[in-house]
Amino acid sequence: MSMNGNSPAQHIVVAIVEDKPGVLQRVAGLFRRRGFNIESLAVGHSESEGLSRITLVVDGASAPVEQVVKQLYKLIDVVKVSDLTDEAMVSRELVLMKIRCTGENRHEIIEIANLFRANIVDIATSSLILQITGDQEKIDALLDLCKPYGIRELTRTGTVSMVRGNRTTTVKEIESDEITKVHQSQGRRVSDSQELPFSSD
């Protein structure tokens, strides 16, 4: 385990991409084609309008990271790529897990949850949902402890990361409005309310 809780084979790559339909397919297609494994992938809006941020955790053994970065850059819709692996950074993932429990062992589980600062967000007769945020190391440890009770359902958001300190991985360049307008509509479905001819002839 490295200082930021990720195993050394894993790389965290952040891609700032144009917020357009199809971008995710392009990124995913690139990984599929080269046989690179994606351990996790998290996407959402970034601080700049029109740009999304994708955080990829890739298995360095399957994917030479330099190639991953360069191939990502080849995609026209990818604006900036940063390999955060060797940076001092904060990495977090949110996990929900539904754990089997009985009246007897519920308290035990709650105690474990408290130790990890996990929250109980739902409780029922024979199960409860734990929510935990943290780096992989912490999440893996909690998972190990919960396994014996029976994990009925598990969902993970995938890692998101940010460099510590004053540095950022943002994109400085601002697009003019007219260009943004076109870029954001490209490939986007028109709203249903709009009247359109039905037949394609």
Binding site: G22, R26, G29, V182, G187
Partner: peptide, 23 residues
């Protein structure tokens, strides 16, 4: 566009006539 995505440098699906020129 789904088909040509891996065999083009880039591709576009144009959904509004006003975007054709820029595209």
């Amino acid at each position: 566009t789904g088909i040509t995505q891996p065999i083009t440098k880039h591709n576009y699906l144009v959904m509004r006539a006003e975007d054709i020129a820029m595209t």
